[in-house]
Design a protein around this nucleic acid. Structure first.
Lengths: 210, 210
DNA sequence: ACGCGATGTAAACATTTGTTTACTTTATGC
DNA sequence: GCATAAAGTAAACAAATGTTTACATCGCGT
């Protein structure tokens, strides 16, 4: 629901409320009247601004894609993004109650062109990062570098998709500060040493609390 | 659409067609008339058998859960399931065109009680497997065994959720025979040695084609 | 003050959807 | 054979939903 002091244009308010509702319940399950009510306007105004429900859907898609694109651009410039947490880093740029993660989850299972474009872009970055690491000698291409890049990228996205279920099972939101710390600590360790830890005959395992 | 020679009861046919349509388009987007038409019966008969659309939804949920439960039981008895591919192994028990994977994907992003139960069960198995490996000395508990188990379980499920998008990006279905081979080969390597491969000073990296 | 476009609304409309009703057909026990 | 229950259907119904129409209000340049 829009707050009483809100200088966004009603067009933007409608789009944002639609995004929130689409993320929460899925676009099909949300009615124009619900969106209108959440935005504090009439149903007719929603149509007036976006022509149809499908037009609104597209507008929301474009908006999400733009938001993510600018975020990804910003991230590729500041080079502090390790391979483990491309998406996690992305999410740290969003407010914790942002509807975008959940919207993305729905987008990905739904398929469609937008999802394909975004997925492609994310995995391309994952591959580029891995290639850079191989170049730098901090990673191995494996038997098939592209498959390896896909594995890394998909693992990254998985935290996002399973956020709620993981929160239940772990007792802590893996995208919260504390949760993310535990999670990436574990991921980093596995990516560095594998599941078995560093071979004891070679060097002692590296632990956080030795 | 039901085939002409089909000895299933019409009740089961309706349930199966509903499952297929729910998986393909999401339960909200599918109408009772579509299900009826796919099953080759009238819409009224769908209601007659399942009382309401929600009743049908529940019946489909129960059926999927039962199918998976019997599959998981069968798998825990034959002890040849490595930690990397609990779900993959599950899927190898299903026909390649089974709607169940896609149905599960929708179930998981939707949340709900059924999804919670199933997710819980899968991650519990993941944890038990990891604990057994630690006991056997083939794995390390890491800084937080439960988080580590969650990471492994979720990675496993991710292939399932991203199947279509991965097929696009990789050029091969990661759940096909060839695709699954490449995928788990990569996963195994990373779980065994990490991204960097075995430290060269200790022993040469283990490759499939040396 | 006034015209006018932008912004907004309530009520009506056509269609879709889940469900009900009244009715027919098919199988089954006796 | 026949009654009776189960399986099945077409048509009607009520509510919901996307959209349209006709009408109101506000801001603003002149």
């Amino acid at each position: 629901m829009r707050s009483s002091t809100d200088d966004r244009t009603s067009r933007a308010i409608i789009r944002d409320e639609a995004l929130a509702l689409f993320a929460a319940h899925g676009a099909d399950a949300v009615t124009i009247r619900q969106i209108a009510s959440a935005a504090g306007v009439s149903a007719a105004l929603v149509i007036r601004h976006y022509e149809s429900k499908d037009g609104l859907r597209e507008a929301v898609d474009v908006h999400v894609l733009k938001t993510l694109a600018s975020m990804m651009e910003e991230m590729t410039q500041s080079a502090d993004t390790p391979v483990t947490s491309q998406v996690d880093a992305m999410l740290r740029h969003l407010p914790t109650d942002s509807p975008i993660p959940r919207y993305l989850a729905r987008l990905f299972v739904e398929g469609g062109a937008t999802a394909g474009t975004l997925f492609h872009r994310i995995l391309d970055i994952s591959q580029a990062t891995l290639e850079a690491m191989v170049e730098a000698g901090t990673a191995t291409p494996g038997a098939d570098l592209r498959t390896r890049a896909a594995f890394l990228g998909v693992n990254d996205l998985a935290v996002l998709l399973f956020r709620d279920l993981l929160t239940d099972w772990l007792g802590i939101n893996p995208l919260s500060r504390e949760g993310l710390h535990r999670w990436s600590n574990e991921v980093m360790t596995i990516y560095e040493e594998g599941l078995g830890g560093a071979p004891l005959a070679c060097k002692p395992p590296v632990r956080e609390h030795p």
